[in-house]
Amino acid sequence: MSKLIVSDVSISFGGLKALDSVSFDVKQGEIRGIIGPNGAGKTTMLNVISGINKPDSGTITFDGTLLSGLKPNKIAAKGIGRTFQTTKLFKGMTVLENVMTGAHSQLRATPLSAAFNFPSVAKEEEEAADRAYEVLEFMRMERFADHEATLLSFGQQRLVEIARVLVGQPEVLLLDEPAVGLSVTRVSEVEELLKRIRQERGITIVMIEHVIRLVMGVCDRITVLNSGQKIADGTAEEVINNPAVERAYLGSKVDVTD
């Protein structure tokens, strides 16, 4: 069953067509890779799904409900979480507080109930802390819970960012280059983590990634974008052997005998 359906999505910035009627659909429990050269429109695709950019035309449906047109916070509340290419952890918060912020949509406190610390607020705060701690344990990051988040190493910050999304119990997780800038051993850890996220939490993943080893290792299917257009879609095997993909990455073959 399709969890997320992107159909005919187009968006332009000024004269530049960032996405040109792109369609694909992601099945429940799938790990989908989005690859393509720089400027292909990959991040724009995630921005459109998460509501940061509104598509000029086309629709996005999630479990049968229309997402396109909703504000990002509504889309997040429906169960679509995302991370960013450059980590955006909140400065001035510990790791645990950052992760607790991800549980925002599940909490009910208002300024009034929070100010007077109603029993319901005290209770939900306790539960949110427990859940945040549980996710950090899942990520094997619990020993950093009380560290200032933005002082962690780059790789650790990326993990905290994933934890912050997971605590909101998303059904679909959009990851923008989770392995960028990580060492080889770290990439293996991310690979294992993504598999565990799917297996243990039943979350569908859509991820942009340049680290081909990771893409080949975890993705069930891969969508290839180039200059805003989808040029291929299929398993790792199919995509690698697709001549259009080769052209996009390496340029066309030049006959030097001429």
């Binding site: 940061i52 916070n73 995302r82 001035g92 912020t101 925002h104 929070a114 607020v121 705060e125």
Partner: peptide, 22 residues
Amino acid sequence: SRIGRAWVALRESEVAAETLGI
């Protein structure tokens, strides 16, 4: 409470705050 955390979140990154449901 979640109010204070939402404030700090939107101070640090409106985009990130929004995609967390704030």
